[in-house]
Design a protein around this nucleic acid. Structure first.
Lengths: 336, 336
DNA sequence: AATAGTAAAGTAAGCGCTACCGTAACGCAC
DNA sequence: GTGCGTTACGGTAGCGCTTACTTTACTATT
């Protein structure tokens, strides 16, 4: 930058103003500066600018892990929106560990990020490290997994509504004894899915049967085990709604191995709309989580926070509506 | 930092030395500084340090897209290794577009990253933007997709060897008319996979039959279409090796719809070891790409480059050996 | 013609940190 | 006691950039 100034016989101020499209700059000088900058292929140093301004164009994102469709897609959504707005995203994985998550927060604060988007780890129970973020005046947005009861900015999925949709669909297919494979209930998402399931039953005037609601590991094996357990019942279910896709696939595999027909004998529906749902036979009905939209929404919320600096900003929660993908595993032939 | 210095009545130099574990620092003072830093919960500003030192702890990663198992896993591997070594990773997506890729490079250079790891976009043909990186003295490592003929640091998979393994396996199962679904040959990976297939045939003394090698779209539909085409042959294949998993799944679905038994009538093997391979029925044999190891290796190569600053550093290419996962789709019963 | 107003450019301070250089104190040899 | 090495610490410049405050040179206003 000093080179440019010397070459053109102007001050560095002028250079800075020309490059950052400031006022108080003559159009002629501005053009000259830009031209020379191109010629010498001047590379701005964002770090220096960030240091000076106390504001970087870096955005921190913390996820439990990046593998797997959900978070990868959310990150995709975030990155796409962010880069369009001139931000770069720093990605951190907590590996479902609070300690690591705390370290991630420290790292990001040290990197002077402009904001932090986070989906908390499974065993995060206290928020002190996030308090710190707030204290530093760094915008903070939660997505998907949030801290309950805390008044925070967040983008979440209407899990309850999605589960309700899926269960209603099973009811409409004529199923009346619908089981539910529930995930760990200390996570808001699983609690909400369970509630959505209960809502649907209630709207059909069906009293929930506790023996049909089983805690499940949300893995292939877990789903199979739970399904086996359900089949032991004196009055086994005619449908299963699972809070996750892996478990419902496990259930499907077990049913097939026992010669039980899907969906004629037992109809199935899952949650997440993973790729595997379209590969299974029959294809699995599932609730889509709008991963990418969630990423976009999270970034937009962050951006709004930045832009509304100072002014009281009201919108604190964005709720996305999930979408049910109906496939063969839940379609009774008489409705097809 | 100035606060700490004032509080303790020492100079900022001392603080800096204590915090960065420098020599020339008394153990007593060091402890005192660290203790006070904790107490005032001092947050270092990495940006400032990076500016001063001309070396940040940021690592740039450019991938075509982050969704999908492969790149997500590689990024996972990179991030895990990087964070262990104190680096933060900035992720960029080129969306398979050279123009975007160039922008990504600019952005990362402006962010003063310590290095760049990149898997080039599908339509990247010239390397000028990467020359720039080299000119800036920023370590550059390619992974998976590389620029051919260029003398660059890279981590690649032995695609040829993997394809060879898969094809040999099919041969050992007694198959003799093995078809190949080939991907777009301008990509090194697909060219190599095709070559590995040919190698295997040759080692069994089988002359390649051009009608058995078909250009394929590497999608579900593409695989199905190619399979249909192969079945039209007067002498149809008794096995298919595909350069990708989606295509082999498409082939499987078509075979099943025609009542052709897998693997008894036609044995199948794919490439990538996607999650879907374990969901399909029968489960699909596939070549695993060691995604995570690739990420780790890429980071390690970068780190070696940094550490070997100046000294002639010889290792320029790391080749990972893929692993064949044999599953039901290729296992003839008499070998099971 | 004197004053005010405005556009365009310059001056310099400083963001937070590190590294070069300097200095004081001490020990040990002869 | 002079010389030299070592250890612990301070002074200060400056990384590349932005910005509040000035200065300069005009044009418009009364």
């Amino acid at each position: 930058m000093a080179d440019l100034a010397r070459e053109l016989g102007v001050s560095m101020t002028t250079i800075s103003r020309a490059l950052s499209d400031h006022h108080s700059i003559g159009p002629a000088t501005k053009q000259a500066v830009l031209k020379l900058a191109k010629k010498l292929n001047y590379q701005p140093n964002h770090l220096a600018a960030a240091l000076r301004k106390g504001k970087s164009k870096l955005l921190g994102v913390i996820v439990p892990y990046i593998e797997g469709r959900f978070f990868a897609s959310v990150v995709h959504g975030i990155e796409t929106a962010a880069s369009k707005a001139g931000y770069s995203v720093i990605i951190c994985q907590s590996s479902e560990d609070v300690v690591q998550e705390r370290k991630n927060v420290e790292t990001l604060l040290s990197a002077q990020v402009a904001g932090i988007l986070v989906s908390v780890s499974r065993n995060t129970l206290d928020f002190r490290h996030f308090e710190k973020v707030r204290k530093h005046g760094v915008p903070l947005v939660f997505f998907d997994r949030i801290l309950e009861g805390d008044n925070v900015n967040a983008v979440v999925l209407n899990d309850r509504g999605g589960a309700n949709q899926a269960t209603l669909h099973l009811l409409e297919q004529g199923c009346r004894r619908i089981a539910h494979l529930a995930g760990p209930l200390h996570l808001n998402i699983y609690k909400n899915r369970r509630q959505g399931y209960l809502d649907a039953l209630e709207s059909f005037g069906i009293a929930p049967d506790e023996s049909l609601i089983v805690d499940c590991d949300m893995t292939l094996e877990g789903g199979a085990a739970c399904m086996a357990q359900l089949l032991e019942l004196p009055n086994p279910p005619d449908a299963v709604f699972s809070a996750g896709d892996s478990a419902i696939l496990g259930a499907l595999q077990l049913l097939k191995s026992r010669g039980i027909r899907v969906p004629q004998d037992v109809a199935l529906a899952g949650f997440s709309n993973e790729a595997l749902t379209s590969v299974a036979e029959p294809m699995l009905t599932s609730v889509d989580q709008r991963c990418e939209e969630m990423g976009q929404a999270a970034f937009r919320l962050f951006k709004d926070l930045v832009d509304a600096e100072g002014t009281a900003f009201s919108q604190r929660q964005v709720v996305l509506q999930p979408q049910l993908f109906v496939r063969a595993s839940s379609l009774r032939t008489d409705h097809a």
